[in-house]
């Protein structure tokens, strides 16, 4: 049982990082970024490249991976989002799909198709309260919690956080009060790219990266933000953990002492759960009344 909880925390931390950034972007800008999964991969692959090919130490490689993720999302914002999103909210949907195809091709060209793992050495596993976890996984779980606490503090206890909340509630009203919404848009978009890169780096350290997984990453993150109430940061984070935990528990539990759910249904059950949740509460678990999407 503790192992299942640990498994849920490992998978949930990754999902929460990616979905959290995405929820901020949706809340503040109101746009969908469908190249998110590719941004995750680029962050992970660049770290792999600096560590394994260029031979840098792990820490500077991670810094470079995150920087490249930030640069990529900045570029994405300036070229694929900013010229379009004021014209219509759905235009970036198309432009980011185009970007995702371009990035897919670039990943194949630059990093080849074979699987890549950032750490090639041993991973020490520890036995804690009946669960096996590696040092890297503990760092990741703690780090994600830390990042979430910082977010909680910034969002709810600083003037900067209040500005973000104001823009989430009403863009134009916030601007009329002197908040520089466009600059905030750029900042939040780059932030989501940074969080996505962190997710990719974690994935590359924990298991391995392969070019085909980008789209399923995007889908899972969207499932979390939709179930969490569109644009609600805490809703998305909560639902990311919820999906991850339900995926682990669905296959890991001997249901009613009688049967196991076949692991092939792992993804299906989590998404079915979301559909049921949306039937009961169509606006999402923690929807805010102020923004009608």
């Amino acid at each position: 049982m503790t192992q299942l909880i640990a498994n849920g925390l490992i998978a949930g931390s990754l999902a929460a990082l990616i979905a959290g950034g995405l929820a901020l972007v949706y809340g503040v800008l109101g746009v969908f970024n469908l190249a998110l999964g590719q941004m995750v991969l680029i962050g992970g692959y660049s770290t792999w490249w600096f560590h394994q090919v260029a031979g840098w130490a792990l820490f500077p490689s991670i810094v470079m991976g995150i920087s490249i993720g930030a640069l990529l999302s900045w570029f994405t914002f300036e070229v694929f989002i900013r010229p379009f999103y004021k014209l219509h909210r759905f235009l970036p949907l198309v432009t980011t799909i185009a970007l995702s195809l371009i990035l897919d091709g670039m990943i194949l060209l630059l990093f080849e198709q074979r699987p890549r793992s950032i750490l090639s050495g041993a991973k020490e596993t520890m036995h804690i309260a009946g669960a096996y976890v590696s040092k890297e996984q503990i760092i990741m779980i703690v780090l994600t919690m830390g990042i979430l606490f910082i977010f909680a503090y910034v969002l709810h206890s600083t003037s900067f956080g209040r500005k973000i909340q104001a823009v989430v509630q009403h863009d134009h009203a916030a601007m009329s009060l002197g908040i520089r919404a466009p600059a905030l848009h750029r900042f939040v978009f780059i932030l989501s790219g940074v969080l996505a890169s962190c997710g990719g780096i974690y994935m590359g350290i924990d298991t391995n990266l392969s070019p085909t997984i980008a789209f399923s990453i995007t889908i899972k993150a969207y499932a979390a933000i939709i179930a969490g109430g569109k644009g609600n940061f805490w809703g998305a984070v909560f639902c990311a953990y919820l999906i991850a935990f339900s995926e682990q528990f669905v296959v890991g539990i001997h249901w009613f002492g009688a049967f196991y759910v076949p692991p092939g249904y792992q993804n299906t059950v989590a998404l079915a759960f979301i559909i049921i949740l949306l039937l009961v509460k169509p606006s999402g678990l923690f929807s805010s009344a102020s923004r009608s999407a």
């Binding site: 498994n7 998978a11 995926e247 682990q248 692991p263 092939g264």
Partner: peptide, 20 residues
């Protein structure tokens, strides 16, 4: 004897069941 979907990377909970 379990079958997983192609390209799955997270087998942790399945592996946990090997304890039984």
């Amino acid at each position: 004897d379990e079958v997983v979907e192609p390209n799955t990377k997270d087998f942790r909970s399945l592996v946990t069941r090997l304890n039984d």
